[in-house]
């Protein structure tokens, strides 16, 4: 059966790259209280961490199955 952690991890990694690229090349400010936040860049990084975490879980599960 397809391990769901792989498509989830890949999906969020790809989208995080898109957000980080947009945040880097076309920065736009979003007000957050007294701060101005580059939302695409910030949330792109959060999503990258989540996507990488899912991929790590997938590969570690795959390795432990093959051992």
């Amino acid at each position: 059966m397809l391990d769901l952690r792989f498509p989830i991890g890949l999906f969020f990694c790809i989208n995080s790259l898109v957000l980080i690229a947009v945040g880097f090349f076309q920065p736009q400010g979003t007000r957050l209280g007294d701060w101005v936040l580059n939302l695409n860049l910030t949330w792109g990084l959060v999503m990258a961490v989540f996507g990488a975490f899912m991929l790590i879980l997938y590969y570690s599960g795959k390795n432990s199955q093959s051992e």
Binding site: L4, P7, T30, R31, L32, L39, W43, F50
Partner: peptide, 25 residues
């Protein structure tokens, strides 16, 4: 079911910043 789980994470990560920005502002 598989798409529903993908959608669950997408919904949480997609809407969470909206609440944070809205409530702080």
């Amino acid at each position: 079911i598989y798409n529903e789980v993908l959608q669950f994470f997408l919904i949480v990560l997609g809407f969470l910043p909206l609440t944070i920005i809205g409530i702080v502002n």
